[in-house]
Design a protein around this nucleic acid. Structure first.
Length: 429
RNA sequence: GGAGAGGUGGCCGAGUGGUCGAAGGCAGCUGCCUGCUAAGCAGUUGUAGGGGUAAAACUCUACCGAGGGUUCGAAUCCCUCCCUCUCCGCCA
């Protein structure tokens, strides 16, 4: 959510910056409603002030046993006027809130202008793309060949876009979760959380999934809870309606959770394999920071996520998303894209964003400056560290051998009972 | 799911219709004082919104779990909801 005062005072500039995201965003309705709102507030508060002083007067007169009936009828009138105006104010405020909740964040000045993912800018490329003497297979083929992934039977259980991991496949997923969490907690000083996988509407609004993107979420029938589409939601909302101490910042959290997404509007995209599932595992990184340091924190967070790929020896690149490709709540986003030989292209495996105070304002997360100043909104950041299913994809594709077996990256072996290779003969796990 | 108790400021805790933003205590801050430590004395300390200002000062309004209602006036009365605790039942 954007700051009302800021918008009011920088209307045209804000409009221009928002337009960079594409589509046309007009703030004229905002302006009208906001002006009306302030007018009404001034009116009703003057009446309330009068009511307060007159009420004291009534109390005083009553004590002296004087007649108050005249002033009483006058007050009745004022009281009903107040009620009427209060309703109007409420109406304007609701309308304003609706507008504000549906406005995306303003892109940071360092974000390249652009319309689609074509306009994203590569920041760096790390690792060597492996060369194969044979035609590399896609992970789904390898997975099914080895008997570690079963999409067909998963369909029997839950339909399309679900998977069953089996044997060393299941172990691989579990190993990656532990591997990632260990690095983030031990080396990168994040605190591990294991949050609820269902949250309330208020949480979803706090991080920006609602009210705009309800169709992407799984809702629990008969209950006002949703399955989380990312750990960002519960973890960021953990400090909702809190005022943190300056000394506590920055706060680093990491959390493993499954993620649930309807993937509405992605029909026909990535139908095969693990790339796009309704349920997938992710290790998330979340930071709460002071405004002054949040962009340094974004760089750090991205590096922390990259570290996982480096340790696993997976080639990747980092791109900065252009204004048109960024998510609703983000002010700046780096995507980390891993190389997938089976597809012959880079695919997103992590998305690291600084939301500045956009989520903090929605979720009301502040910190109290040490010098005793007014509480200020914190900046929130998060990024995948990493999407686990897609990491499995990357390993199956980058480490595949001609005979269909897959070498386990060395760093992961301690988490896989020292296993060096997954092959048909040892698929029982 | 059944029965009961309760939700007040950073914390503890008074307050059952009228100067209550809220007594008292603790903690914090600022002075004074005492040779250090401790104690003592005085003052001060919430959030949001409107107006005002270059920014302050200042001023008004709202906020005692949330939302409605009664009333000239509500922390205090009424209704609905949420949460916490205790006991019983059920359960991984």
């Amino acid at each position: 959510m954007l700051d009302t005062k800021f918008l009011r005072e920088n209307l045209e500039a804000a409009e221009k910056r928002l337009a960079l995201r594409g589509g046309s965003i007009s703030l004229s309705e905002f302006k009208t409603i906001e002006e009306e709102r302030r007018k009404l507030i001034a009116e009703v508060e003057a009446l309330k002030a009068k009511r307060n002083t007159e009420s004291l007067e009534i109390a005083r007169l009553k004590k002296e046993n004087k007649d108050v009936s005249k002033i009483l009828t006058e007050m009745q009138q004022i009281s009903s006027q107040i009620k009427e105006l209060d309703d109007k104010v409420k109406g304007e405020e609701e309308a304003l809130e609706k507008i504000l909740l549906n406005l995306p964040n303003i892109p940071h000045s360092s974000v390249p202008a652009g319309k689609t993912s074509e306009d994203n800018v590569e920041v760096r490329k790390v690792g060597d793309i492996p060369e194969f003497a044979f035609k590399p297979r896609e992970h789904s083929e390898t997975g099914e060949m080895l008997g570690i992934l079963d999409f067909e039977r998963a369909g029997k259980l839950s339909g399309a876009r679900f998977a069953i991991y089996k044997g060393f496949g299941a172990l691989l997923e579990r190993a990656l979760i532990n591997f990632m969490l260990d690095i983030h907690t031990r080396e990168n000083r994040y605190t591990e959380l294991l949050p609820p996988f269902m949250v309330t509407r208020a949480c979803m609004t706090g991080t920006g999934q609602l009210p705009k993107f309800e169709e992407d979420l799984f809702k629990i029938d008969g209950w006002d809870h949703f399955l989380i589409p990312t750990a960002e939601v519960p973890v960021t909302n953990m400090h909702r309606d809190e005022i943190l101490k300056e000394d506590e910042l920055p706060i680093y959290y990491t959390a493993y959770t499954p993620c649930f997404r309807k993937e509405a509007g992605s029909y026909g995209k990535d139908v095969k394999g693990l790339i796009r599932q309704h349920q997938f595992n992710k290790v998330e990184l979340v930071k709460f920071s002071k405004p002054e340091t949040s962009y340094d924190e974004l760089e750090g967070l991205t590096r922390d996520a990259e570290k996982i790929l480096q340790r696993l020896g997976l080639p990747y690149r980092v791109v900065v998303l252009c204004t048109g490709d960024m998510g609703f709540a983000s002010a700046k986003t780096y995507d980390i894209e891993v190389w997938l030989p089976g597809q012959g292209k880079y695919r997103e495996i992590s998305s690291c964003s600084n939301f500045e105070d956009f989520q903090a304002r929605r979720a009301n997360i502040k910190y109290k400056p040490k010098d005793g100043g007014k509480p200020r909104f914190v900046h929130t950041l998060n990024g995948s560290g990493l999407a686990v299913g897609r990491t499995v994809v990357a390993i199956l594709e980058n480490y595949q051998q001609e005979d269909g077996s897959v070498v386990i990256p060395e760093a992961l072996r301690p988490y896989m009972r020292g296993l060096e290779k997954i092959q048909k003969s040892n698929m029982k796990g």
